[in-house]
Every structure is written in structure tokens, then in C-alpha cells.
Design a protein around this nucleic acid. Sequence first.
DNA 1: TGCCAGGAATTGC
DNA 2: GCAATTCATGGC
Length: 281
Amino acid sequence: MEIEFTLPFTYDFDRGLERLAGDPVNAVDLPNRAVLVPMDEGNVITIQATGTTEMPSFILKGAINEEQVNAVQSIFHFHKSLNPIATHFAETDHGCIFKEHEGTPLIRSFSLYGELMKSIIHQQLNLSFANTLLMRFVTDYGEQIDGVWRYPSPERVAAIRIDELRDLQFSTRKAEYVIGLSQSIVSGKLNLEKYRTMSDEEVTADLVTYRGVGPWTAQGFLMFGLGRPNLFPVADIGLQNALKKLWKLDRKPTRDEILARFPEWSPYLSYAALYLWRSIE
DNA sequence: TGCCAGGAATTGC
DNA sequence: GCAATTCATGGC
């Protein structure tokens, strides 16, 4: 199945793609403006941009049914206009960062489980080393099919011994978190799909009961896993550094200084966070 | 070289 | 309860 379509709103696919390219697990082809999406059903869908930010158009190839087309359109935020977000930030008068990233979508992760594993692995590590660790995890235990890496199944990870991950340079705790969460999924206690219909607060309250998941990880999961628009991980070092730069401070902003801006950015806190992250990449 | 990194659990008072 | 410490190792 091959589909061509246009979007009736501003959409900066290239910026969205740049962000996806920062994750080495993703199969992104920046020069050709394309990305491969591994689907749960086993096939791979290709999205390629053919238009511009102002006149976005795309070719979608490889879907096996209408449901997959809808799923992908939801993942990429093709289904709903981004214009209200740009309008909102224009009115809050917070400058150049939000204006500059106008039309940049929050593209969801292709796997809820993968997003959770990635978040755990990224905790408290510099991005470079975190990505090295993540790629070791995926290449050692996952599989590459049709040019795209897939995360291992929770079943596979649940059976890993801690010392195997230690050999990949995971800390003991990080190994325990990754394996333990996978075991909870295998047992049926933790059901990530169930979160899709729950509120941000309900998902957070449940997620943080699991060892290895704190507020930062829960908020990241909501943003990038479920695509929720109104979260801002105040504990995030990257966001603190981005605000330090934006506000020209000689120190990182305090929690209260950040919280004071929430009313202006709400209900699009996630986009404020996304654009701030992009501003220091 | 020493501090920091897109945190969270554990310990100590 | 809340602050300090620990985890682990690469990056700069």
C-alpha cells in the first residue's frame, strides 16, 4: 500500500526527523527526508517528506491495512493541527525559541516498551554514553529486520542475568531496573497499553511504584511514549541548562523559577520542553 | 583532572 | 520527612 497525502497546517518534518536521528535505534535517512517505522505486526512502514514546512506532503509506503495508516498518522501527529501550539507560544511572548521551532511536532516513540527501556538506560548519563549503552542493549538482545532495529521482547529481557548487562557496562542498579520492569510486564502486572486510556496523573502514580521509575522517567514516558502534550520534567538537567541559556543566568534556574512559567506554557508544556531540548542540541 | 551527566534508591538524622 | 550519599562510567 502506498499513500500520498498533504497536511493543512505548518509541519516541520525535518526538525522532527533530526530529533529522531538523535536516537541511534531509529532508522532515519536525513538527506532523503525519510524514516522507517517498525510496526508491531512485523512489517515496516516508510514515511518520506516530499513537501515543505508550509506545504507539507508525504509518501507513506508499506502499511498492510487502514489501522496501521491511522496508527502512524497518530505517532507523527499528522492527524491534528500544530497551529494552536504556535499561536499559544506567540501569545506568551517568550521569544525566539518557541517561534524558531514553530511547526516542530512531538513524534512519539515507535514502541512503548522501548521508550521505557530507553528512559531507564538514559538516566543520569551523558547523552553520548547513554546512546552507546542503549545501542549495545538493542543490538545484543533485539533484532534488525528490514533495515530497522527492534527492541527485544520483555520476555527476552526478563531472562537476562544482571552480570550480562554489567558486561555491557550497565550499573548493577540499571540492570536491575531494566530486568525487573520487563519481568513485571511479562507477569502481566505492568500493562503499558493500558496507560493509553488513563490520565497523566493516573499513569504517573502507577509507574512510579516500580523500582527504577521516578518522576523524570514517568514524565518522559508520557511525553514521548504516549504523546501527552502537557508535561515538563523540572528535574531534567538538559532543560535546566536550556533555561539557563535562554534566561542568560550564571547558574541553573531553581525549581520554583521554572514552575513560575508553567501557567504561560500550559497546556503545551511538553512542546516547551521539546523546543528547549532542541535549543541546546 | 575532577566534575558532570536529559535520576532514582537508599541511608542518615 | 527531607537532605546527603551512593550508584558507575564515559565525556569534556
